[in-house]
Design a protein around this nucleic acid. Structure first.
Lengths: 344, 344
DNA sequence: TATTAGCACTCTCCTGGAATGAGTGCTAAT
DNA sequence: ATTAGCACTCATTCCAGGAGAGTGCTAATA
């Protein structure tokens, strides 16, 4: 038994209605609200078929139908068109991005707020992960008692700080010298370049403090990997207003999920490695099955090969996929553009 | 009608029982569980008195009594002794603080986790606010296109960064010069000193870049006030397990409260300005009345006149005050000590 | 042959009343 | 002053019955 045109229409109608109302939808409703020109009885027959095929479910005998995971999947893959955001929404986004922004994290945060505000679901946005970003400046500052602070400023305006141990007998001037030499050699090169070619030259000039320099170089190199990828999380209150979380237990599992930043960040990291395009994860397609009944719409943003991150919307599986996918698409494009400017 | 010894005993018993069970407590329970040597009937009479005096409340006629705000207040002020933490707990705390810590924020975060873990309520810890902290190093780094980054490192290992506009025609070497002069003059002085005495000297040496230097000095000065006082918030999930939040609405108001970082930070800031000692805020004693039914136990920690912050436990008014106050006291002492070491 | 009207059936949800039980306040006895 | 006893109150639970929504099946219809 195939899924013919009429079945598609009915499936779409059911999903749309369920998305809107969060109530099981019956044959009568479909016949009345969506003018398909067929009677409830016919619709009932089709619904029975769709249920048999696994696209619909029935909470109990005398209730209407609700979409199954598979139903949503089919809808997202075949029935739905991403919806371009309304002009009004576009305007909100535009104005939000026009405001003068100073730091990357500010842009990320704003984006997250925007997403949660516009969707009334939860928003996840990861800070961009830098790739081969050039070093602007290196500075060592004595902190007393055999400690020094290493500052590494990379493009565009990222600052890493580390406190390291140095020989007790090293002087502030020594540190200044090291800084100067390091800067002269390093400045403008990408992190990758540094490790491979320049290391040797620096050693030669700074033989006296070999161990220290070695350590610093390690730190600078590490920066590449360990740019602590923070995740902006917003709109938690929003999503709690969704009827699926009226029940306290559901609410708590969701919250405990959102508490695990590591999990979220790995979810986003996965997306960031994808090619362009929007990914929709529905219900049990997640690796971790804590998120029963939730879906995630995510997309990657990026600045031409120099930094990438991901943006995602987390909501109940009963989510307005058309609207959300459209919005996510529009937003990632804008976000990429704004960042592009920041990186010059 | 005064509150005699026996009434005190009964009030204490009721509060202890209610804290333990979260159920209205009846005369029978008191007579059975707390050997006061008097009959339920007598207790009933006393309870009626206590209710009349405003220390107890009755949810409805045929239920037991629960403590009123005033009841808790009396308990905290007169009936309760802070409880020294159990040896086991002390051990947990000790070992937690013995681990090598690198940054202040790490200590703060750990403390927060500790608090929420040990109390099963929510923990708030503010990052310490520096007072007159000395400047270690100032560095200007060219960012291209008329922008430069100002780095200010203050004691102990705090880094402030600002991106500022500078004249287009300024060179990297100019910035280097400014940095050098600033450093020579500023290093080691507290922020207060700087503004008052040294400003003039610097101007003289750097007449060429007066505007820029002026701006930088302003930024350095601002740092004093604007050290963004972040608040570590932990154990939200903990507190949601308390029976008072079984109801979804209560849960949501609490969460929306905890979402407002500004509010929390002002709550803590108030405490940080207090003298030593533990403050207990019960129910409607809060400025904002969103927190109906909650209490806050807070204390200030500090490093001899150089930095202060506050630590607080937020829980339902039905909170184990004896345990919590004892713990908060113990923890702030330890935290102060650990920070003391970090500041040397 | 596909569609539809009609009808019996199922199941949830709501309502109201009765039973239960915890706890009180009052009165009279100790 | 304390306590035993008793009538009373009120929340909670349980159950039965009715309403309502929706289904599946069968027979009639185009």
């Amino acid at each position: 038994m195939g899924i013919d045109e009429r079945k598609k229409e009915i499936l779409r109608a059911i999903i749309l209605d369920y998305i809107a109302t969060a109530e099981p939808v019956g044959s009568r409703t479909i016949a009345r609200k969506y003018g398909l020109g067929i009677s409830p009885a016919t619709i009932r027959n089709e619904m029975a078929d769709l249920e048999e095929m696994g696209y619909l479910e029935q909470p109990h005998t005398s209730a209407g139908r609700i979409p199954s995971q598979r139903g949503y999947r089919y809808y997202v893959d075949r029935l739905m068109e991403p919806e371009t955001p309304a002009e009004e929404e576009k305007l909100v986004i535009k104005t939000n991005y026009q405001a003068k922004v100073k730091s990357i994290s500010e842009v990320i945060e704003r984006t997250g707020q925007l997403v949660s505000q516009l969707t009334s679901y939860a928003a996840l946005v990861s800070t961009p992960r830098m790739i081969g970003s050039a070093v602007r400046h290196v500075q060592l500052v004595a902190m007393g008692e055999g400690k020094a602070m290493v500052l590494v400023i990379t493009e565009p305006e990222r600052v890493q700080t580390h406190v390291i141990d140095v020989p007790e007998n090293i002087t502030g001037e020594d540190l200044e010298t090291i800084s100067r030499v390091l800067n002269a050699k390093i400045r403008g090169h990408s992190l990758n370049d540094i490790r491979i070619t320049i290391l040797r030259e620096i050693y030669l000039e700074l033989l006296r403090h070999k161990a220290t320099v070695e350590y610093i170089m390690e730190l600078i190199g590490d920066g590449e990997e360990s740019t602590e990828e923070r995740v902006y999380l917003g709109g938690v209150l929003n999503i709690l207003n969704q009827p699926e979380f009226r029940n306290v237990e559901k609410m708590k599992t969701l919250l405990s999920l959102l508490d695990q930043e590591g999990l979220l960040s790995s979810l986003l990291a996965e997306q960031a490695e994808q090619e362009e395009g929007i990914t929709v994860l529905i219900g049990d397609e997640f690796k971790c099955d804590l998120i029963q009944g939730c879906s995630l719409v995510s997309a990657r943003y990026g600045v031409g090969g120099r930094a990438v991150g991901a943006l995602a919307v987390l909501g109940p599986s009963r989510m307005d996929y058309a609207r959300v996918t459209g919005l996510v698409d529009y937003l990632t494009r804008n976000l990429s553009r704004v960042l592009e400017k920041l990186y010059r």
